[in-house]
């Protein structure tokens, strides 16, 4: 009973009212994901951003100059040593219990970036650039004895690592400079 209660409490669905409510941390994340960049043309800034994303191995999926938006993705393997070791460990434990247990591990990931920019009020040469990184992970299939654990269990997470954003904006500043001076 307690286990069932715990399970249901873990899977409680969120209230729809919260979907469009700003969370207490949204201002913090916005600051992390945004920078002010000085440039005279918005198209130059957008093209410099696309160049940085290409340098980072992203494929540009969508671009919209009117909205000042770029969307890019890159596909990578999501395999991690720690998960593989855990999988082998559980399998060995299963042998002792005379059941073959293969736990699902992360298999593949798609890292996506959405970039938007808009000019700052009363300034023709300053733009606010915001980029959001997130990743979608696909798990492999698994099995417990004769019962199969289906593949394709997908999870998604936002990336809030400050270093990633700092690196991106450092590269963007350089790229904007190169773009302006046609280097």
């Amino acid at each position: 009973m307690l286990f069932a209660a715990l399970l249901t409490s873990c899977n409680t669905m969120p209230k729809p009212e919260s979907f469009f409510q700003l969370s207490p941390s949204s201002a913090k994340y916005k600051a992390l994901q945004s920078r002010i960049i000085e440039t005279s043309k918005d198209t130059e800034l957008l093209s410099a951003s696309a160049a940085v994303l290409q340098d980072l191995g992203f494929q540009i999926e969508e671009s919209n100059t009117y909205a000042g938006m770029l969307r890019a993705v890159k596909e990578r393997s999501a395999r991690e040593y720690s998960q593989e070791i855990g999988r082998v460990f559980v399998f060995i434990l299963g042998i002792f219990a005379q059941t073959a247990i293969v736990i699902p591990v992360d298999l593949h990931q798609q890292i996506a970036a959405t970039l938007v920019m808009h000019p700052i009020e009363n300034s023709s040469s300053r733009f606010n650039v915001r980029i959001v990184f997130h990743r979608t992970i696909w798990k492999s299939d698994g099995s417990s004895g004769s019962q199969a654990i289906p593949p394709g269990l997908q999870s998604m997470e936002m990336i809030y690592d400050a270093k990633i954003y700092q690196q991106f904006f450092a590269k963007l500043s350089k790229s904007v400079f190169l773009e302006i001076h046609q280097i």
Binding site: C10, P14, R71, T114
Partner: peptide, 26 residues
């Protein structure tokens, strides 16, 4: 974006924005 949505498509002539996000625990 402030609300944590991922903007999927923007169609400027139609003034259309489509966005999505995952919600809830797990």
């Amino acid at each position: 974006m402030d609300l944590g949505f991922i903007v999927e498509r923007v169609n400027a002539p139609l003034g259309l924005v489509t966005a999505a996000k995952f919600a809830g625990s797990g």
